[in-house]
Amino acid sequence: MAEAAVAGNGAEAKMRVWRGDASGGEFRDYTVPLQEGMVVLDVIHAIQAMHAGDLAVRWNCKAGKCGSCSAEVNGKPRLMCMTRMNTFEPGETITVAPIKTFPLIRDLVTDVSYNYEKAKTIPPFKPKPKEADGTRRMYQEDIDRVQEFHKCIECYLCQDVCHVIRDHDDNKPSFAGPRFFVRVASLEMHPLDTDDRLEFLRNEAGLGFCNITKCCTEVCPEHIKITDNSIIPMKERVVTRFYDPIARLLGALGGKKS
């Protein structure tokens, strides 16, 4: 598969890229020379250089860490900079479209401010008072669990793929999305945090909308187990608080905040 895609043998990348804005547009075909080691973002840059100087694309680090170049490559939400060209069949036409869930600005660029608005609604970290010697202590086993959540690069691919808002625009006001369930989980499980976000999760953040179909986990470029390690544990804490009369009676199953 990869042999045809190496430098010097005249291999070409056939691309079908979305061109247009919120008022309309179309897919346009471009062909550019393919070189060894290219990723989709390189090909988009080659199209800019050779055929379409006005092709709008948001990008920054080219290393899978800034979370800017999210797009839908052959219909799958991906980071363009982390999608290698040699993973496609030689000669295959590769479709590149903007992420679907957010309003289109132009070409491959969307307005992701929905996410920034949701971020503002999350009750912030509220640490417990310092100990007598003026410090706060955390233990490794408590940090290990939340460390995973801190890998998030905010590419919003999970938000894009989540069908709750991708296919149902009307749910946007009442649903925060997987990225912010990860954020809330990192705070709720934090050994020093004292705030309680379970009521927020159930109501404002709309955790109940999630039907755990795990697409967020499938697309995460940082391989955060969003569903198993943040959403389901948060659902279980919400169950303890609101749906489990026996746990409420016992009153002790949920740790410090439940």
Partner: peptide, 25 residues
Amino acid sequence: CAVRDAASGYSGETRFPFILQNIHR
């Protein structure tokens, strides 16, 4: 993933009957 839902409306597990999933434990 990234294939449109069959139904046009969606309320997930916020209402009956799917809110009953919470009794899993």
